[in-house]
Amino acid sequence: MLAACSRTEKSAAIGAVSGAVLGGIVTNDWRGAAVGAAAGGATGALIGRANEPNKCYYRDRFGRQYIDRC
């Protein structure tokens, strides 16, 4: 599922899943899992973007996303 994703998208997905699991375990409630998923996803996206310096995301006229130098 993550094979076609960029590093930023993969990091965000991994962060969201990890945050949801940890938030659910710590609070023993679905609200804690939701907050953990949001925080983990945002943090993962920031980390993923930091690992791709000088890369920009573009879309072609068909809506396909690709990455190239800025």
Score class of each variant (00 low, 15 high):
residue 1 M to D: 11
residue 2 L to D: 12
residue 2 L to Y: 09
residue 2 L to N: 11
residue 4 A to P: 11
residue 5 C to H: 12
residue 6 S to M: 08
residue 6 S to W: 04
residue 7 R to V: 14
residue 7 R to F: 08
residue 8 T to S: 11
residue 8 T to Y: 04
residue 9 E to T: 09
residue 9 E to Q: 15
residue 11 S to F: 14
residue 12 A to Y: 00
residue 13 A to P: 09
residue 14 I to N: 00
residue 15 G to C: 03
residue 15 G to L: 00
residue 16 A to Y: 05
residue 16 A to C: 08
residue 16 A to L: 04
residue 16 A to I: 05
residue 16 A to S: 10
residue 17 V to Q: 03
residue 18 S to V: 13
residue 18 S to K: 07
residue 18 S to I: 10
residue 18 S to H: 04
residue 19 G to L: 02
residue 19 G to A: 01
residue 19 G to W: 01
residue 19 G to Y: 00
residue 19 G to P: 01
residue 20 A to E: 02
residue 20 A to L: 05
residue 20 A to P: 00
residue 21 V to M: 07
residue 21 V to I: 14
residue 21 V to G: 05
residue 22 L to K: 00
residue 23 G to Q: 00
residue 23 G to V: 00
residue 26 V to D: 04
residue 27 T to M: 12
residue 27 T to Y: 08
residue 27 T to V: 09
residue 28 N to A: 13
residue 28 N to S: 13
residue 29 D to C: 10
residue 29 D to W: 12
residue 31 R to M: 13
residue 32 G to Q: 07
residue 32 G to C: 08
residue 32 G to M: 08
residue 32 G to F: 10
residue 33 A to F: 01
residue 33 A to K: 05
residue 33 A to M: 02
residue 34 A to H: 04
residue 34 A to S: 12
residue 35 V to L: 14
residue 36 G to D: 07
residue 36 G to C: 06
residue 37 A to N: 10
residue 37 A to I: 04
residue 38 A to E: 05
residue 38 A to L: 11
residue 38 A to S: 12
residue 39 A to I: 13
residue 39 A to T: 14
residue 39 A to N: 05
residue 39 A to D: 05
residue 40 G to C: 03
residue 40 G to R: 03
residue 40 G to P: 02
residue 42 A to K: 03
residue 43 T to D: 04
residue 44 G to K: 05
residue 44 G to M: 03
residue 46 L to F: 10
residue 47 I to D: 07
residue 48 G to I: 00
residue 48 G to M: 01
residue 48 G to K: 00
residue 48 G to R: 00
residue 48 G to L: 01
residue 49 R to N: 14
residue 50 A to F: 08
residue 50 A to P: 05
residue 51 N to C: 13
residue 51 N to D: 14
residue 52 E to A: 06
residue 52 E to I: 01
residue 53 P to T: 00
residue 53 P to A: 02
residue 54 N to E: 14
residue 55 K to W: 07
residue 55 K to G: 03
residue 56 C to G: 15
residue 56 C to S: 13
residue 58 Y to H: 15
residue 58 Y to R: 15
residue 59 R to M: 10
residue 59 R to W: 14
residue 60 D to N: 05
residue 60 D to I: 03
residue 61 R to W: 06
residue 61 R to V: 08
residue 62 F to A: 12
residue 63 G to A: 02
residue 63 G to C: 01
residue 64 R to W: 07
residue 65 Q to Y: 06
residue 65 Q to K: 11
residue 66 Y to D: 04
residue 66 Y to I: 01
residue 66 Y to V: 02
residue 67 I to K: 12
residue 67 I to M: 14
residue 67 I to Y: 10
residue 69 R to Q: 13
residue 69 R to W: 11
